[in-house]
Each structure stands twice: as C-alpha cells, then as structure tokens.
C-alpha cells in the first residue's frame, strides 16, 4: 500500500552515506575525548597533589603523618599532621555518630511514617539543608550556634558528664571542636538521609507486608526486614557521609578556632586537615610549609578516594546480589 516500493535497487542502496559515517565518527570522537578528559582530570589531580607534596614527603617521610608539631619558624621548620589527623578523626567520627541515627530516623519517617501530604515537602526541605553553602553554615556557626553551645550546652554537659574526659571545662571563647562537630552533623545529615531514603524505598513491598501480616509491629518489621535488606547500602551512605565530613574545610575553619595540640576535651579549639589548609590561604611562611600543606591535602585526597571507591564497591556488590537495588553507583 505504500507508494515507495521496496525495489531491489532501493534496498541495496546503503542506508548511511559517507557524510553520515563521518558525522558518527566525529561525534563519537568528540564525546570520547570529553569522557577521556574527565578520567584524565582525576589522574591529573592526583599527580599534581603528589608533585606539590613531594619536597615535604622527601624531607619528613611517613613520620609526617603522626608527628604533632607545626613550626614554621625559618631555619627550624618542622611540620607534622598528627594533631590535624586527630582533629579530623574526632570531629568527623563524632559527627557521623550523631548524624547516623538522625539520618536513618529521618529516612524511616519519610518512607514509613509520614502522612502522604508531608512526604514530598519534608523530603525537599531536608534536601534543601544540603544546598546551604558551607560558608553560610560557618557564619551561623560562629555567631549563633557557638555562643548557644558555649553558654547553655557545654556547661550542662560538663556538670553532668564531666567525668568523661571528652566533656572538659566549657570553652572560654566561641570556637570549639564541639561546635565543629554539630556543624558537620548538620552538613552530612541530609546526604546520608537522602541516600538511605532511596534504599528504604527499594525494599520490596511484599517483604514488608509479609512481616506485618505475621503480626509484627512496625518497628519489628523495620528491624527484621528493612534494615537487613538495606544494610550494605546504609554502610555505603555512612562512608560517603564520613568522606564529606572529613573533606569539609570552610565551615570547620570558621568554628573550630585552630591550634596544634591533641587533647580529648571537645570544648577547646583544634584544627582538622582541611581547616588547617583553608586557614593558611593567605600564604605560607616558607616553601616547605607550603609543600607540607599540600602533603595534608594529599592525605585528604587519599582518604576521599578510599572512601568513595569502597562505597561504590559496596553499592555494586549489594546491587548484584539483589538483582535490582539502588542505582546510585553508576548504571552498570
């Protein structure tokens, strides 16, 4: 019925001409070059940071990582990352410990409990929290959160839990490690919560309904079905949250106060790897100090690579085991 008959000559005519093949090749080349550039960029970042840190690596070696000193006095320069590593570990681990239950609670609320009208708005409000720039959170941390914690929360914690070395005497000025922990908690809460929410949404409905039909309460259903199902994904979400907390520089710099020492009290000042780098932006005293700062950046970079790759690996393994599952880690 068609007017254009499929004659043998027409059928034999090549569908794609030379121009078409050239176009295909060109687009593929250009797009491939962009993809290659993205991959090369990651390698370039690693190479440039290693290169910048090399003089400090040559001078201080691996001991740099554990040494607790930062002395830029010309002629007697000694640098070490020990106190910053300690500050990074204590702030980000405690922030994660605070954020994890909050984020999982939030995700449970959004997937299991919230009335239907509340779900979409509350979800986007929590995600909005992630959109607030860190410099604004830091500003708020110095002038609003810091004083509140210093005046009301720290004395209360010290008087009730003072026997634990973490809760030493309250800080005299605003900045403290404690403020940094609370600020970091706020910053990683929305990230962990939005990933966890997606995981919970992926739990098969029939499993949940099956548990409820057996007479479990809602909490028992969550504990027995939702948590085991999403366990791997939650671990990945927590690792990504930790990576974000470790790498956050600006807000922490603003509220943590600075200083090179290791002490357990949360209510005094300190520094993290990232905050030490950020607070030195107006120039290092010597070349060696600059290389040492880049060494700090190298430690950060290695940690963030490890955190990301292990999180991706967990997500992929879980996805393969469950057939479906979260497709956050690429789409392979």
């Amino acid at each position: 019925m068609s007017s254009a008959e499929l004659t043998p000559e027409v059928a034999r005519r090549p569908l794609t001409g030379r121009r078409a093949r050239l176009g295909d090749l060109l687009l593929q080349l250009v797009a491939g070059a962009a993809a290659a550039a993205a991959t090369v960029l990651v390698l370039l970042i690693a190479w440039k940071v290693v290169e910048g840190a090399r003089p400090a690596i040559a001078k201080f070696g691996v001991h740099f990582i554990t040494r607790v000193v930062w002395n830029p006095v010309v002629g007697r320069e000694v640098f070490g990352a020990g106190s910053f590593l300690f500050g990074t570990a204590i702030t980000s681990l405690l922030a994660l410990a605070l954020a994890a239950p909050l984020a999982i609670g939030c995700a449970l609320f959004l997937t299991e409990l919230a009335p239907r009208v509340l779900r979409a708005p509350v979800t986007s409000l929590v995600e909005t929290l992630a959109a607030i720039p860190s410099v604004v959170i830091g500003l708020w941390g110095i002038y609003v959160l810091g004083p509140i914690l210093q005046r009301h929360v720290e004395p209360a914690l010290h008087s009730t839990l003072g026997f634990i070395p973490l809760f030493g005497p309250p800080s005299s000025a605003g900045p403290s490690i404690f403020t940094a922990i609370v600020v970091l908690t706020m910053m990683i809460l929305p990230i962990v919560s939005s990933i966890t929410r997606e995981l919970f949404l992926g739990v098969p409905r029939e499993l949940k309904e099956g548990a409820l039909a057996l007479g479990t309460t809602r909490w028992e259903m969550v504990r027995g079905v939702v948590f085991p199902y999403a366990r791997g994904g939650i671990a990945a979400a927590l690792i990504l949250g930790l990576g974000r907390a470790v790498g956050e520089a600006i807000a922490v710099t603003q509220v943590i106060g600075g200083g090179v020492f290791i002490h357990l009290s949360l209510f005094s000042t300190g520094d993290t790897l990232a905050s030490k780098i950020a607070s030195s932006y107006q120039g290092a005293a010597t070349n060696l100090e600059e290389h040492s700062l880049i060494y700090l950046a190298l430690i950060l970079l290695v940690f963030s690579l490890l955190a990301n790759i292990s999180a991706q690996w967990i997500v992929r393994r879980v996805a393969r085991r469950q057939g479906v599952g979260p497709n956050r880690g690429g789409f392979g």
Binding site: A35, A38, T39, L41, V42, I45, V49, L240, G243, V246, G247, E248, A249, I250, A274, I277, A278, A297, L300, L301, S304, L305, A307, N308, I309, Q312, G329, G330, F331, G332
Partner: peptide, 15 residues
C-alpha cells in the same frame, strides 16, 4: 569513566 565521575565528585573542594 563512571567511576572517575564518582571519584571526582567525592574529591574535597579544598583539594
């Protein structure tokens, strides 16, 4: 390439 994008996304801004 997909992994590179994820890694790039995870590199701290200060780095």
């Amino acid at each position: 390439v997909s992994l590179s994008l994820d890694v790039l996304n995870g590199v701290p801004a200060i780095v």
